[in-house]
Nucleic acid binder design. Structure first.
Lengths: 204, 204
DNA sequence: CCAATTACCAACTGATTGGTCGGTTTATTT
DNA sequence: AAATAAACCGACCAATCAGTTGGTAATTGG
């Protein structure tokens, strides 16, 4: 029974390192040996815990990635009033994380979408499901914002959500090169401008 | 002298097929044999014309990709009056191309950026240079739009350009899955809303 | 304390890849 | 027509990779 803990601990270590390397080098460009070398583990250990490289990836997406995206981009918005403020805040936080050090999980997600597009429909489904959760939450929050008087009633919540997600994915793609700090500043500035429009009456 | 034409023709065929497969399957996931098989050519032919796979890719980026992005996203805007209208038109056209059939080169560009990020700085530079050309052109056109009275003088042209590029890259990433037609519609709708703001006075 | 289960090791396999090389065919020049 | 060069062929090499297998070390329950 206690061994179950060790099993989980080892699997977690593998998943965590796997996500890190998959993010840095891409899934197809990262060999299982790369991951194992970093952990000082052997092939046998890997295939004892996971059926295949793909099975390993799926477990990472559904366990690690989903949770991280959720806690970073969904939870901070959920049920809050003044949606436009909390949405821009959550995105700004995500971009700041990205700028300072390392793993911005929203970006990991969009990287994976790009990498697996047209190659692995099953993986794509898991990834798009995470996007969907974010999207639905944005829409719900925006709609609630309408009844609470924060959002213009004429705004198309679905379209706004799409636009927000798009611009976030795009700015993260651009931030990999160039001056991330400046890019973030410019981006947030325009996002807030855009939100002003939605907060107004009878324009959107 | 005449043989030079044959050389160029063969190289063009290789580059064209190469770009198509690199776009569909990714660079690292496409073997040289994949390309040669499609062209009924041999390894020898490939290495007669190109030094390496990487050299091949660079030639594709600098010859094919650059020109295509330029003619699709830069040229239609260049020197035109009423910048906001022509910009949204050019993006709408690009998305329509993407939706209907095949190669949307702006998206090829952003796919490559994602794939080579952190792996090949040299390739990244070539790719970001193309983005830069687009960005500079957007900024120039927006600035000209200010003096011509189409764009609000208070608008931050650089920030607007960044925001436009970001959202385009993002929506294309999303369009790979889901309903591309609807996504395009929603996106363009919001882009035009955003542009209304910039056309107004003293807000942006 | 011992047997059984869990966790892990590391050599190996078969397939794929980028790249090489000696040779053949096709076109051009003289 | 002969000689030269350009264009292409395809077998081969070394490296890499996902996955297998037969074993060993550590843990645990009886």
């Amino acid at each position: 029974m206690e061994s179950n803990l060790k099993r989980m601990a080892t699997m977690q270590r593998m998943q965590s390192t796997g996500l890190e390397l998959f993010y840095q080098q891409g899934y197809y460009n990262t060999s299982i040996d790369d991951i194992l070398k970093k952990l000082s583990l052997s092939k046998g250990a890997f295939y004892y815990h996971f059926q295949s490289k793909e099975d390993f990836l799926i477990s990472i997406i559904q366990n690690l990635l989903f949770q991280k995206v959720y806690s970073m981009l969904v939870e901070p918005i959920e049920g809050q009033e003044d949606p436009l403020t909390v949405i821009s805040k959550s995105i700004e936080d995500a971009l700041e994380t990205a700028e300072h050090n390392a793993l911005d999980f929203g970006f990991v997600l969009s990287n994976f979408i790009t990498e697996f597009n047209g190659k692995n429909p099953q993986i794509m489904k898991y990834l798009m499901d995470i996007i969907k959760v974010w999207e639905v939450n944005l829409i719900t929050t925006l709609q609630k914002g309408k009844t609470d008087g924060y959002v213009d009633r004429h705004a198309d919540s679905e379209a706004v959500a799409t636009y927000v997600i798009s611009s976030y994915i795009g700015i993260r793609t651009l931030m990999v090169e160039g001056n991330p700090r400046m890019l973030r500043y410019k981006y947030i500035q325009q996002l807030k401008n855009y939100f002003k429009l939605i907060a107004q009456k009878a324009i959107a």
